[in-house]
Design a binder for these strands. Structure first.
Lengths: 130, 130
DNA sequence: CCGTATCCGTCATGATACTG
DNA sequence: CAGTATCATGACGGATACGG
């Protein structure tokens, strides 16, 4: 009765080579749990407050329910997200971030700044070439 | 005569839905150029100074030459990295980051901090469960 | 040393349809 | 609404060999 594939909790990246040291290892550890296109946008959007499945989908733009479901399960398993179920009809489910997700605030803030500036850079360099 | 697949320069993520606003769009723009396991570690390791192909491979731990080659090309195309060829025998090639890559310094710093703390958290929680 | 070529496998992501 | 089932594609990677 497995739905798609079992999801194992992330532990740590196996960065065994001694040459892979200090900073690189730390960054690879971070990306190991925050892999893929969606985890950081997801944590960011939930940092604005708890949201329902459909609302998350809308706020991310174009994620499919299958991927969103998988990403949320991974984040839950790694203690970034909590799932709340309310026995309404139909059932209501909300997702909220854990305090641990808050430790990513600075990362997300810097990334947001960079993304904003990057978009601006692309747009203006386009105009310049017209 | 294509080698593997053609690499197109990134421009901008198509985040069309109006609902996908502000912060989420910016973060998705950022991840759109910095996608995958290797780009941030790569830029980070090159931020320590220009390095040769083999040295980059060693510092990242376990990337294969095929993938490293592809990632470097993408970063070159998007103006994060410059490739320098020296006519020695055998030929020497170094890679260095552009000034634009420096705009990622804060992101990389925060990510490095977070990765370091995250590893610590995992390790100590392991000990606690013994 | 600096890569590229080829074969081949696995995993991530996605489009679409569907269920409770 | 909150997801799951099915099918498909492309990214990513391992192994190995080879060329400038």
């Amino acid at each position: 009765m497995k739905t798609d594939t079992e999801i194992e909790p992330y532990v740590l990246n196996k960065v065994t080579k001694e040459e892979c040291t200090g900073g690189v290892a730390a960054i690879r550890d971070a990306l190991y749990v925050l892999n893929g296109k969606w985890k950081l946008p997801l944590i960011f959007t939930l940092s604005e407050g708890p949201k329902r499945f459909k609302d998350i989908q809308r706020s991310l733009g174009d994620i499919t329910p299958k991927i969103l479901s998988k990403e949320l399960k991974e984040l839950e398993l790694n203690e970034f997200v909590i799932r709340n179920v309310y026995s309404t009809t139909p059932v209501t489910v909300t997702y909220q971030i854990t305090p641990y997700s808050r430790s990513l605030d600075k990362v997300l803030l810097e990334l947001k700044h960079w993304g904003t500036n990057h978009r601006q850079r692309i747009v203006t360099s386009r105009k310049a070439s017209n």
